[in-house]
């Protein structure tokens, strides 16, 4: 049975798009049929992170408005056969999305895929509420800092009130994905610790993604970090998170990139 997952956060720049791509690729590596859907109409980025920006012909808006058929708009990933992308439109804005149209497209996707990952835009306006509206599961992406945590709290409130599932009186499954985590800085009190964030948000933890250069490197070459360098720390963390999303019990570890003695001596940054 297909599952619609919304990847959301409220605050911008915390890693929704990166996480959507990485989780999508990790789920596809596990053999599931996966589609990642970009809901950030007007500011589309998921196509870049997936490395498909030069293959976009039709987009979500075309399908929602009935100008194109779904198979015309879906872009199959070159690396993984069972991973597809439904891009957003860069020239339109969120008002072009209609609720009925989105519902119809998601229903159609349910028939073709096992996992439908919706990359929500930042904010709490129309785009974000439409992205979460039909979801079965929510992944709340949060950075270990106060503004991100408060915005995530706001989004959790909306997930519990403004989604179809909530309106039917059911409980929305919500998972916390803590990104850009630096254990050393958390230990020094320079960033919120995992416990602090969990205490405030009180939703189950899906994974802790360590701060890493690998993430930006992967984005820049247009590849989900789980495909670009599967042995890197963030890739392993995303792979574990994807397995937890499937319901597997995986021990919660914070992977790190082992550094040699020289790396430790010279790899320190001033910041």
């Amino acid at each position: 049975m297909a599952k619609i997952v919304v990847v959301t956060s409220g605050k911008g720049g915390v890693g929704k798009t990166t996480s959507t791509a990485a989780l999508g690729a990790a789920l596809a590596q596990g053999g599931s049929r996966v589609v990642v859907v970009d809901f950030d109409v007007g500011l589309r980025n998921l196509d870049l992170v997936m490395g498909a920006e030069r293959r976009v012909v039709y987009d979500l808006i075309n399908v929602v408005q009935g100008d194109a058929k779904l198979p015309q708009a879906l872009i199959r990933d070159k690396r993984l056969d069972n991973l597809s992308l439904l891009p957003a439109s860069q020239t339109r804005d969120k008002d072009a999305l209609s609720e009925a149209g989105v519902a119809r497209v998601l229903e159609e996707l349910r028939e073709k895929f096992d996992w439908i990952l919706c990359d929500s835009p930042a904010g709490i306006e129309r785009g974000a509420t439409l992205a979460m509206r039909h979801a079965d599961v929510a992944v709340v992406v949060t950075n270990p800092e106060v503004s991100s945590v408060r915005d995530s709290d706001r989004i959790i409130g909306l997930l519990d009130s403004k989604t179809e599932k909530a309106e039917r009186g059911e409980r929305m499954d919500k998972h916390l994905l803590l990104t850009r985590y630096d254990p050393a800085r958390a230990e020094r009190g320079e960033m919120l610790r995992v416990d602090d964030v969990l205490e405030i948000l009180s939703i189950p933890l899906l994974g802790i993604i360590p701060e890493s250069e690998e993430v930006l490197r992967a984005s820049n070459v247009g590849s989900p970090v789980t495909l670009n360098n599967p042995v890197s720390a963030p890739a392993r963390a995303y792979a574990d998170a994807a397995r937890r999303l499937k319901g597997e019990a995986v021990e919660m570890l914070i992977p790190s990139d082992r550094r040699g003695l020289l790396g430790k001596l010279f790899g320190r940054r001033a910041a």
């Binding site: 915005d151 706001r154 409130g157």
Partner: peptide, 8 residues
């Protein structure tokens, strides 16, 4: 019964 979230 639950928590009151930010913005509520």
């Amino acid at each position: 019964e639950g928590s009151v979230r930010s913005g509520q």
